[in-house]
Design a protein around this nucleic acid. Structure first.
Lengths: 123, 123
DNA sequence: CATCATGTTCGACTGTAAGCGAACATGATG
DNA sequence: CATCATGTTCGCTTACAGTCGAACATGATG
């Protein structure tokens, strides 16, 4: 469904990143989670994030992230691979990404109350 | 209209600041302008900002800023004085405010096209 | 080639953000 | 005390963000 005549995957130039747009993109917990996962480094297809929303909604969130310049997307056969525009973000808004990642970590399933961090999550 | 029985001016604790809420607060150009103006240091009453929206809308924006923990408000007789919670923000999200201020500066009436930055703005 | 997997797009719906004016509350001022 | 200045609150609109399911497009796979 990817590399054909449709929307040609627009990415804003590094120096065209808009601060308020990036903040808006990062102000959503779901998108912040995606960013955190991409921060691990590897390119990941959209479907690999297990987001608790429908596919169409996922598409929407990835689009917001791409169009604000937070992530890069490229088509690889069937799948659309996502990566973090870390260098661009660091160049344009130094420190912002680090901050976002730190907070995304904190947001990540606040440790229920188990004394040791073991065992599977309760059903 | 201020210090009476109404809403008692709630401010979130420093360690209770929510990242996504702060980002949302800062992602609005109008509110960003307010933050920039408060960054000059002085306490300023709401009416002194000359925002291009109605009074009720201004009240709304100040409320968003206060409840997200970006600004502090206190009543002084007739007026409600605003100040930036700089220390709290720096403690909780180091670097974020500096970044926002830098970008707010950049947003500030993008230099029309006058070769030298002189003369009053055209009517 | 038929089917499946991966994503996007479209239209509709819902909720919230942002805007306004009118009414109100209160402190300052004449 | 009457009036003015400063802000908030209360509906009420309007715009947009977020969500979904259905339909579609395309690459991969049997």
């Amino acid at each position: 469904m990817a590399s054909r005549n449709a929307t040609p995957l627009v990415h804003p130039d590094t120096d065209a990143l808009v601060f308020t747009d990036v903040l808006t993109a990062l102000s959503d917990p779901l998108r912040l989670a995606v960013v955190a996962e991409l921060a691990e480094g590897a390119e990941k297809p959209c479907g690999s994030f297990r987001l608790p929303v429908s596919k169409s909604t996922q598409s929407w969130h990835f689009r917001v992230l791409r169009e604000s310049g937070v992530i890069r997307q490229r088509d690889d056969g069937n799948r659309r691979l996502n990566s973090l525009r870390r260098d661009d973000l660091d160049a344009r808004f130094p420190g912002l990404l680090a901050l976002a990642l730190r907070e995304a970590q904190a947001l990540r399933v606040p440790p229920e109350d188990s004394p040791d961090s073991n065992g599977p999550p309760p059903p």
